[in-house]
């Protein structure tokens, strides 16, 4: 029987994989994908809690849908930024864009 713990374990792993990817990858697209992983691990949690702990309420589902929508918008904005970045820096490596310091 798959219990809540299993799903939480998966989502936690997914979350930290995302975090790890976000912190280590230099390619912005990959970083964006890692962020998606983080968001999806959260979605997984919402659904799991909805299923196991609060089947009567729909809050978890709503939030998941909401997150998906936001993630889509975020991806759009992020990709737009990345494209612009590529235009100015001829690269989408994150450490080429470090002007915002000091």
């Amino acid at each position: 029987m798959i219990g809540l713990e299993h799903i939480l374990f998966i989502s936690t792993a997914l979350f930290f994989l995302g975090i790890y990817g976000f912190l280590t990858r230099r390619n912005l697209i990959t970083m964006l994908m890692s962020v998606e992983l983080v968001l999806n691990s959260v979605n997984l949690n919402f659904i799991a809690f909805h299923k196991y702990l609060w089947p009567s309420g729909m809050d978890g589902v709503f939030f998941t849908v909401f997150v998906i929508a936001i993630a889509a918008a975020e991806a759009a904005v992020a990709i737009a930024i990345i494209i612009n970045l590529y235009k100015t820096h001829r690269s989408i490596l994150v450490d080429t864009a470090e002007e915002l310091k000091y």
Partner: peptide, 14 residues
């Protein structure tokens, strides 16, 4: 202190 403000997104994330 200001070197903490490195401009690197990933450091901020960390």
């Amino acid at each position: 202190i200001k070197t903490w403000q490195s401009g690197k997104v990933q450091e901020y994330g960390l």
